[in-house]
Amino acid sequence: PVYLSVKADNSMFIGNDPVTDETMITALNALTEGKKDTTIFFRADKTVDYETLMKVMDTLHQAGYLKIGLVG
């Protein structure tokens, strides 16, 4: 499974590897070998604001990742 996490300080990680807004999709493409039907499990600290969550989800959708599971 692929886990994308947003921490309380808005830092992002794919698994244990830090990513930025600019590198997130490139890292996901490498990890999933470009398979856009891969489910991305998205988790965020409860203090992360809604705007940040939606920005990340919008970026995922624009890149073609449509299977996003929200996890606690």
Rank of each mutant, 00 (worst) to 15 (best):
S5K: 07
S5L: 13
I14L: 14
R43L: 14
S11L: 10
S11I: 10
D58W: 11
Y3H: 08
I40W: 00
M54K: 15
I25E: 03
M57C: 08
H61K: 14
S11H: 08
T52Y: 14
K36A: 04
A30Y: 09
D37G: 10
M12K: 04
K35M: 07
M12E: 01
E51K: 12
K36I: 06
F41E: 10
A63R: 02
D45T: 04
V6P: 01
N29D: 14
E33S: 11
F41P: 01
L70H: 07
V19F: 03
Y50Q: 12
T52M: 11
Y50C: 15
G69Q: 15
V48W: 03
L4W: 01
L53D: 00
I14V: 13
G64K: 02
T32D: 02
V56P: 00
D37K: 04
T39D: 07
T39F: 14
H61Q: 10
P18G: 05
G34V: 03
V2L: 09
G15P: 01
A27W: 10
V19D: 01
R43G: 06
G64A: 01
V56S: 02
V2Q: 03
D45Y: 05
V2N: 01
M54Y: 08
Y65H: 01
V2T: 03
T52D: 05
P18A: 10
D17Y: 13
T39W: 14
Y3W: 13
T20I: 04
G34W: 03
T20L: 03
I68F: 04
A8Y: 09
T26P: 13
D37V: 04
M12P: 01
G34L: 05
P18M: 11
H61R: 15
F42H: 00
T23N: 12
F13L: 07
V71H: 08
V71I: 14
D49C: 10
G64E: 02
H61A: 12
V2G: 01
H61M: 13
F13I: 04
A63W: 05
T59M: 15
A8D: 08
V71N: 07
L4K: 00
T59D: 06
Q62T: 10
I25S: 02
L66P: 03
V2R: 02
T52G: 04
T47F: 12
S11V: 10
V71S: 10
T32F: 06
V19C: 06
K46V: 10
V56C: 04
P1F: 11
P18Y: 09
A8L: 06
L66A: 07
F13G: 01
K55E: 04
G69I: 15
D45H: 07
Q62A: 14
K55A: 08
G72P: 13
G69R: 15
A30L: 11
I68H: 03
N16L: 09
T38S: 06
V56M: 08
V2C: 04
L31Q: 06
A27L: 13
L28P: 00
R43S: 15
I25V: 10
Y65Q: 00
A44D: 02
K55R: 13
E51Q: 12
M57S: 03
K35P: 02
Y50I: 13
K35S: 08
M24D: 00
T20C: 04
G69Y: 15
D21V: 15
A8C: 10
G69F: 15
S5A: 07
G64Y: 02
T52W: 14
K55P: 02
F42V: 15
G15R: 03
D58H: 14
I14D: 00
K67L: 09
N10P: 01
K46E: 14
K67H: 12
D21E: 14
N29T: 08
E51L: 12
T59L: 15
M57T: 04
T47Y: 12
T52V: 14
K67A: 07
N10W: 05
M54W: 10
T39H: 13
G69K: 15
M57R: 06
D49A: 14
G72S: 12
L60S: 00
D9A: 08
K7L: 14
T59V: 13
Y50V: 12
D21R: 14
L28C: 03
V56L: 13
M24I: 13
M54V: 11
L60M: 04
K7W: 10
T20P: 03
F13S: 05
D49I: 08
T59H: 09
L66I: 10
N10C: 09
Y3I: 13
T52H: 11
D37N: 11
V6K: 02
L31C: 07
G69A: 15
